[in-house]
Design a protein around this nucleic acid. Structure first.
Length: 815
RNA sequence: GGGCGAGUGGCGGAAUGGUAGACGCGCUAGACUCAAAAUCUGGUAUUCGCAAGGAUGUAGGGGUUCAAGUCCCCUCUUGCCCACCA
């Protein structure tokens, strides 16, 4: 008997699969149903992947392998997130040009992924930094620009001093840069944006219906942050300007005792009087100097100044003082609020500090507890003709009244901001814009794309507010596409996220040099059936959904949502229970485990077995020998089967083997379908354990039952452990690959065993178990239960008041 | 502070309201061996009992139910996301 030697058989089969193109997909084959499965594309840095990443990539591999075996034309693509900050920072760190640093790091990545035996179609590999790819990223920019969804605007934006670039809202995490983890500041700059807010409502509405991991859906909804409310217009006493505030509680309008503007509000400066001018200007200056983050971290102590001006509350014509305070955010709503200190915590704190009036307009529910500021619902008081109306109704009535008076309207506001896409960094797709003195920003015509990123020696950020490209004069100086006059190229590059917001469309038409993708190909291959990742729950997925919807409107794609199923898996932690990271030195390279003799299959099975996909679990390297042991048991079992001649079994043994095999086939099929990979593995272990037990009493060898058991086991195991199963499949005499069109069918007639175990409870407590024939009638079962001796003891001669029978499971006797 | 999850043996984790702890790790006994490793077979929540069997057990407290890890309410702990968003 041959010994199981993973290293040998894995090398052998990986070469054969590559030579024979086992996982190559023919896009034009429409006879088989399509299945399109992918993981988020890896970002390239020197570290390569660790065992945590490996698990992520494997989920899409399991799914696609199972479908391929089930007769689908199944596609599992691979590509590289090559542009962007991570690669450039890595290049700076090792002192090489980004292109070179990237290409060198890629070697390690490819080696890892290939050794792990993922069923990628390597012939269709893409890279976002390849001109044949970013040509189309730039083309998409043009399309957005053409439709008014790309625009340039000067505004204060997050700026990372370490990385010398602006960042999108989504890339600032807890006030820190997503790459270098340093505090960011605000800087007023002229920047390019994509108008994702125009799609906010649409994206939000579609979110509930998605078959996505719930957590991701919640995070997206929170990020979009839709608030239904009203805009209310306050006249300014003695002036012509109108002050518009946003509120979600128009029902509390009678309780608005003052109005607060953000320091950045355009009216802030102009509302001061001679007496207040100095303090107002001082406050605004001070606020501008401090970043939002500093304000946030500096304790929540409220600060503010009175402008000296008054606003007229439209509902009761009260004169309310106008204040400026930095607790009001410039970027949200209108940058101005009406303050209702009686029913808002922040307003209350502010009013107390500055001795401003507090008027209750919502009746508190009567409770024993002392409620500080009541923010809930209730009937209105002190609200003129709206008194007594419940707050929810009052909201509508007051807004109706405001609309009639022309002093307000309903308004929906979002927390989500437009997507800031310009980066003052070299390593990205150049924004295809030419600035002409006469024509302003002019898009580079489609037929002149791509705008090639020039090769420069000094690519590092040089400390200004422009990328290194600004120094490449021969590239910057060009002519205007409209007038032919002298013009300059835009020197900012596109956010790396832009490059990865459409790659799933390029995957299905990667060599097309006429268009980004062929809509007809997309019509067959889109959308992605299974997508998974462990990061980018907000930014990447929102951006992709935004673009997809835009493409859908242009008729370029057949569906508005890019990913049918999105599975967001939790991280595998380092053995010490903390997050794996290279800087902490607690990562585990999959190559290390494979090279120590366990091979890819044992590692793969363990990756799936360790925990359900959505649970964080610490890596325990001792688990790999466990799955290795399991694969060895499979190996021995199949070898014994192969080496033996024909055998004859008892009818009972045949039945037992077939029940296990058919049940297991059904279980694994549904577990994979439901993304329950860990229980799929344990079910296979159980089946193998059972076969071992049967084998101690009955011979294993050629017989219909054993043949089905062994073949189906290999087929079910093959998405998890593709190498060992392929090897054994061939040793059994098969000449085709196990990985295409081989999946066991189960027959319901085998799913019922001859015997069943009925649990007998007395008053809900387990007292006996009955091993009886599966066709025993309900009456018989109840009788048997009632006469069981231990049951009788606990019935204590009392008459049962009720006997509950759960078919095939239990009897509960209530006395 | 807000939103969404999660709390089960020594560990990772199983359980359509119906036998809690499947499966694996670890530990342990036996078989094989000169011996060890590997392998195979058994045991392994706590506790009382020679045993049969009993009691207790899914963070804590209440509730619904014939029956609760699972459903409802409160409390605690913990993870993630957001965070002065009016």
């Amino acid at each position: 008997m041959k010994r199981y030697n993973p290293t040998e058989i894995e090398q052998k089969w990986q070469k054969i699969w590559e030579d024979e193109g086992t996982y190559k997909v023919d896009f034009s084959d429409h006879i088989k149903p399509k299945y399109y499965s992918m993981s988020m594309l890896p970002g390239i840095t020197g570290a390569g992947i660790h065992t945590g990443h490996g698990r992520t990539f494997q989920f899409s591999d399991i799914k696609v392998r199972a479908k391929r075996q089930q007769g689908y034309n199944a596609y599992h693509p691979i590509g590289w997130d090559s542009f962007g900050l991570p690669v450039e920072n890595y290049a700076i760190k090792i002192g090489k040009k980004p292109r070179i640093a990237h290409d060198e790091a890629l070697v390690h990545f490819k080696q890892q992924l290939k050794r792990l035996g993922y069923s990628y179609d390597w012939s269709k590999e893409i890279s976002t930094a390849d001109p044949s790819y970013y040509k189309w990223t730039q083309w998409i920019f043009n399309k957005l620009y053409e439709h008014g969804l790309a625009y340039q605007k000067e505004s204060p934006q997050w700026w990372c001093e370490t990385d010398q670039t602006v960042l999108a809202n989504e890339q600032v995490i807890g006030g820190k840069c997503w790459r270098c983890n340093n505090q960011v500041t605000k800087k007023n700059l002229n920047q390019w944006f994509f108008k994702i807010t125009e799609y906010a409502d649409e994206i939000l509405e579609a979110t509930d219906d998605l078959n996505w991991t719930e957590m991701v859906k919640t995070m997206q909804k929170n990020w979009i942050g839709r608030s239904q409310g009203a805009e209310v217009e306050f006249k300014i006493d003695g002036r012509d300007e109108i002050l518009t505030v946003f509120t979600t509680r128009p029902d509390t309008l009678f309780g608005a005792t003052f109005v607060v503007l953000a320091p950045e509000h355009e009216l802030a400066k102009t509302l001061s009087t001679d007496e207040t001018r100095e303090s107002v200007e001082g406050y605004i200056l001070e606020a501008a100097r401090k970043s939002e983050i500093e304000r946030m971290n500096e304790s929540r102590e409220k600060t503010g100044v009175f402008t000296g001006s008054y606003a007229i509350n439209p509902v009761n014509s009260n004169k309310t003082p106008i204040w400026i305070a930095d607790y009001v955010l410039a970027g949200y709503g209108t940058g101005a609020i009406m303050s209702v200190p009686a029913h808002d915590e922040r307003d209350f704190t502010f009013a107390e500090k500055f001795n401003l009036p507090i008027i209750e307009v919502i009746e508190k529910p009567a409770t024993d507890e002392e409620v500080g500021v009541y923010c809930g619902e209730g009937p209105l008081v002190n609200s003129g003709r709206f008194d007594g109306i419940d707050s929810a109704d009052a909201r509508e009535q007051i807004v109706d009244w405001l609309e009639q008076e022309g002093a307000g309207k309903t308004k929906v506001t979002y927390k989500m901001r437009d997507w800031l896409i310009s980066r003052q960094r070299y390593w990205g797709a150049p924004i295809p814009i030419i600035h002409c003195l006469e024509h302003g920003a002019v898009a580079v015509p489609d037929d002149q794309l791509p705008v090639i990123l020039p090769d420069v020696d000094d690519f590092k950020p040089h400390g200004g507010e422009t990328s290194a490209l600004a120094g490449v004069t021969e590239w910057v100086n060009t002519t205007c596409p409209k007038c032919g006059g002298p013009a300059k190229r835009e020197t900012d590059t596109l956010d790396g996220y832009a490059c990865s917001s459409w790659y799933f469309l390029r995957y299905i038409d990667p060599f097309n040099d006429k268009q980004a993708w062929d809509p007809e190909v997309e019509n067959h291959w889109g959308p992605v059936d299974f997508y998974n990742g462990a990061d980018h729950a907000v930014a990447h997925l929102l951006y992709s959904r935004f673009w997809m919807r835009f493409f859908y409107k242009l008729g370029l794609v057949s569906t508005p949502e890019p990913f049918k199923r999105m599975m967001y898996n939790a991280y595998i932690l380092a053995p010490d229970g903390t997050k794996m990271s290279k800087s902490k030195g607690n990562t585990i390279d999959p190559l290390e485990i494979m090279d120590s003799g366990y091979g890819a299959d044992s590692l793969r099975v363990y990756e799936m077995f360790i925990a359900p996909y959505d649970l964080e679990a610490p890596w325990d390297t001792r688990g790999v020998p466990g799955t290795y042991r399991f694969l060895n048991r499979v190996w021995t079992l199949v070898q014994d089967y192969i080496d033996a001649g024909e055998v004859s079994l008892t009818d009972a043994a045949i039945k037992e083997i077939l029940v296990i095999a058919h049940k297991t086939a059904k279980k694994i099929t549904s577990d994979i379908e439901d993304d329950k990979f860990n229980t799929a593995v344990s079910s296979m272990m159980e089946a193998v354990n059972s076969y071992y037990k049967i084998r101690t009493e009955q011979p294993i060898g050629k017989s219909a039952a054993w043949t089905f058991a062994v073949e189906s086991l290999l087929q079910l195991l093959s998405p998890f452990a593709p190498h060992i199963t392929e090897e054994l499949w061939h040793q059994m005499g098969n000449s085709d690959t196990i990985h295409v069109d081989h999946w066991p069918a189960w027959d319901n007639k085998y799913l019922q065993a001859d015997n069943m175990t009925i649990v007998v409870q007395v008053n809900g407590k387990l007292r006996a178990k009955l091993e009886i024939a599966a066709d025993t009638s309900e009456d018989e079962i109840k009788q048997l239960a009632l006469v069981e001796s231990n049951v009788q003891t606990f019935m204590d001669n009392k008459k049962p008041t009720k006997v509950i029978y759960v078919p095939g499971r239990l009897v509960n006797i209530v006395v």
